[in-house]
Design a binder for these strands. Structure first.
Lengths: 117, 117
DNA sequence: TCGTCGCTTAGCAAATCAGCTAAATGAGGA
DNA sequence: TCCTCATTTAGCTGATTTGCTAAGCGACGA
């Protein structure tokens, strides 16, 4: 993740562009959206196993989805014994998608951002 | 498009699910996000040619992106002479993505929607 | 220390996607 | 009528994605 939430300094345009890219790609898949939902509605924290047992696909497939979400900065992992606790990064989800969507809420007057895409 | 904006009756859960799916898939590609942006910041209406000339890829490729956006209900086409005018459906973009995102803004208390994904 | 549990990694196959070129279509103008 | 312009359709190719199974690995309990 090129995520700004890791550093104190505000994100550069390039970083924001990258964030948009990885987040939008991550949420493109229904199972990954579902994982985020489940995670959110179960309090924001679940082990890999708890997540995997809720899906029809095999465990390794879920693992990979989780890796995509992690790479997008939408979840973080905390190893706990032999389990892995996945934690939803709700703030990042809302910030990244929300600020993209906001461009369409303003009336089109000023002109587009320099490729915020 | 299974879009509710076409009929007067409120969308069923199944339709909303489908809408989420096609919209999120459509905005997953950077060029398609860019098309929506350009369209928005140029007033919401452009011909296929005006759109195509802003992109590095060939015209047929842009045409296909436009078809994806159209199938998602994010743009509508109005033939005008030998041109095709593409019109942004900003309301649908905001409604579909916004209402999905809203699930994460509420505190997780009530439980998830019945597979709104 | 040995087996099991929880999960990930490796690697394969099928499907989908995004780019391209070439050809087709349909409206308008000469 | 015939040509050209604006755009789409058809069809190919290579890259990426998503699913799977099998194997690996570290933590824990017996």
């Amino acid at each position: 993740m090129s995520n700004s939430s890791r550093s104190a300094r505000p994100a550069t345009a390039k970083e924001r562009l990258h964030d948009t890219e990885v987040v939008f790609s991550a949420v493109a898949h229904p199972n990954r959206r579902q994982i985020l939902m489940v995670l959110h509605f179960r309090g924001g924290e679940m082990t890999a196993g708890e997540i995997a047992e809720r899906f029809s696909c095999r465990w390794p497939t879920t693992t990979r989805h989780l890796k995509v979400l992690e790479a997008a900065g939408l979840v973080q992992v905390v190893p706990r014994g032999r389990e892995r606790l996945y934690r939803l990064n709700r703030k990042r989800l809302i910030a990244t998608m929300g600020s993209w969507l906001e461009w369409f809420e303003k009336e089109a007057a000023i002109g587009p951002p320099s490729r915020t895409v």
